[in-house]
Design a binder for these strands. Structure first.
Lengths: 128, 128
DNA sequence: ATTTATGCAAACTATTTGCATTGCC
DNA sequence: GGCAATGCAAATAGTTTGCATAAAT
């Protein structure tokens, strides 16, 4: 069944995404992890992020401006990416499951979806 | 106002996205363009895709699996990416403008959004 | 004439992979 | 003990940039 091994590195990667709580990228996870465990390699971070997302323990919320972000909150919700500071915010709106709203996709297996808003966040608008 | 110059390359890039009609990537545009104009460089394709999207003449529909796709259909619509063949399909559903559904984002300027579905397309399900 | 755009090559960023070694189960 | 996971370095994919030259206005 579960032929995945429960390594220290895997725990560290999972915990980093949770503790950072910023829709972290692989790079951010890596920087966080090596503070306490300096020998962990970046390849291991990438491998574990992919596997954890595959296993449903983390959520790959998509690629924004060339970089993939992960979320420890796996239930359906949405995101906003600031075009200036590139921070990712949660969007608290509730929509009906959009998979049910789609017509004319017979024969397709829709596994999920991402809804990503973009624009300028409060902080960046104030500064301008 | 418009200090952009109307070069042959820019026309070729725009036309390629339209004629390909497959939510093309820079690579696909490049391959298409050099069939008729073999000296056009990939950097020029990238530069023009960015500029055309910036100008609103093309739509950057987001980065799927590490690659940015462009659409000549600039009015609001949605997409489905097949995880297997990685083709991008239009999703014909009509939703109300989701920007109006969002609460608790005061002070944010929401410029737009992408709604991207993913899963397996008809062709790939048949083959399996 | 001016100044943006091009082509080329090199640089850069994000990510993946091969492989010998380590360490979970 | 066996096999999945790691660390390292090198490879790859997508994209951007510097610069001399070409071409649009």
């Amino acid at each position: 069944m579960d032929n995945k091994r429960n390594t220290i590195q895997r725990q560290l990667v999972y915990n980093a995404v949770e503790e950072l709580n910023i829709h972290a990228t692989a790079e951010q996870v890596y920087e966080y992890v090596i503070k306490s465990h300096p020998t962990v390699s970046k390849a291991t971070v990438y491998r574990n992020l992919s596997q954890l997302a595959e296993a449903g323990e983390l959520l790959n919320i998509g690629n924004f401006f060339g970089t993939t972000h992960y979320d420890h909150n796996c239930h359906e919700h949405y995101h906003f990416m600031c075009e200036q500071c590139r921070r990712v915010y949660d969007v608290p709106a509730i929509f009906p499951d959009m998979r049910n709203e789609i017509a004319d996709m017979d024969g397709f297996e829709i596994k999920g979806y991402n809804l990503n808003f973009h624009g300028l966040c409060r902080d960046c608008l104030v500064v301008q």
